[in-house]
Simulated scan of single mutants.
Amino acid sequence: MNSASPVAVAMGRNMQIRPATSAANLADPTKILPQQRLNRPVAPHLTIYRPQVTWVLSSLNRITGFALSGSLYLFASAYLVAPLFGWHLESASLAAAFGALPLIAKVLIKSTVALPFTFHSLNGIRHLMWDLGRGLTNQQVIKTGWTVVGLSVVSALAIAFM
């Protein structure tokens, strides 16, 4: 048995001590902490836990937010510098270029934009409900998570085929 008796703990006879630092490391005090960190065990975190809808959707919410805002900033920047480079990013030329694409390409492009947008929007509503103190039990969180996934897919397909 690895645990000490309560009497040993109370008397101070069960003190854990750190092994003495070697004399070689004492020459350079900046290397003591990194060396001690190398001897520490690494927490297993993600490798031992089964994926759950809560943390998967939380990660996807952050990823979709980053992708949507990054795309917006990229397009807005390109739109601002377009006259300098002779690019035609005005609405009429974009609509004409998109209209010339085959149907499958239109559906794929619209799906690529619609799915992250609908997911991030619906999951944002879910988070706003949590801010109001509603739906915070484990069962409700799982149920609303899968509801967001289902509604996101259905609404993204509806938008893509419009």
Rank of each mutant, 00 (worst) to 15 (best):
M1W: 10
N2Y: 12
N2F: 09
S3T: 10
A4Y: 07
A4W: 05
S5G: 01
V7P: 02
V9C: 15
A10Y: 04
G12Q: 07
G12F: 09
I17D: 09
T21K: 04
S22L: 10
S22R: 11
A23H: 12
A24N: 08
N25F: 14
L26N: 13
A27E: 04
P29K: 13
T30D: 12
L33E: 11
Q35L: 06
Q36G: 12
Q36K: 11
R37N: 13
N39K: 07
P41I: 15
A43V: 13
H45G: 11
T47K: 09
T47L: 14
I48S: 11
I48Q: 11
Y49P: 10
R50P: 13
R50Q: 12
Q52K: 14
V53Q: 00
V53E: 01
W55L: 15
S58I: 11
L60M: 04
L60P: 03
I63Y: 00
T64I: 05
S69K: 13
G70L: 08
S71L: 13
L72M: 12
Y73C: 15
L74P: 02
Y79A: 13
V81D: 06
A82T: 03
A82C: 00
P83N: 10
L84E: 11
F85Y: 12
W87L: 14
L89A: 04
E90L: 05
E90A: 11
E90W: 10
S91A: 13
L94T: 01
A96V: 09
A97L: 08
G99Q: 04
G99M: 07
A100M: 07
L101H: 09
P102Q: 01
P102E: 08
A105R: 01
A105G: 00
A105V: 15
V107I: 15
L108N: 03
K110T: 11
T112R: 07
A114T: 01
A114F: 02
L115C: 02
P116L: 06
T118I: 02
F119Y: 15
H120Y: 03
H120S: 01
S121H: 07
G124Y: 03
G124A: 03
G124K: 01
G124T: 08
I125A: 08
H127G: 12
L128R: 09
L128Y: 08
M129D: 04
M129F: 13
W130F: 13
D131P: 04
D131Q: 10
G133H: 01
R134T: 11
G135S: 00
G135R: 05
T137R: 05
T137K: 05
T137G: 07
Q139I: 06
I142Y: 03
K143Y: 06
T144V: 05
W146C: 02
T147F: 05
T147D: 05
V148P: 02
V149Y: 03
G150H: 00
L151E: 01
L151S: 05
V153L: 06
A156C: 01
A156M: 03
L157Y: 05
A158V: 09
I159G: 07
A160I: 04
A160H: 08
A160K: 04
M162N: 15
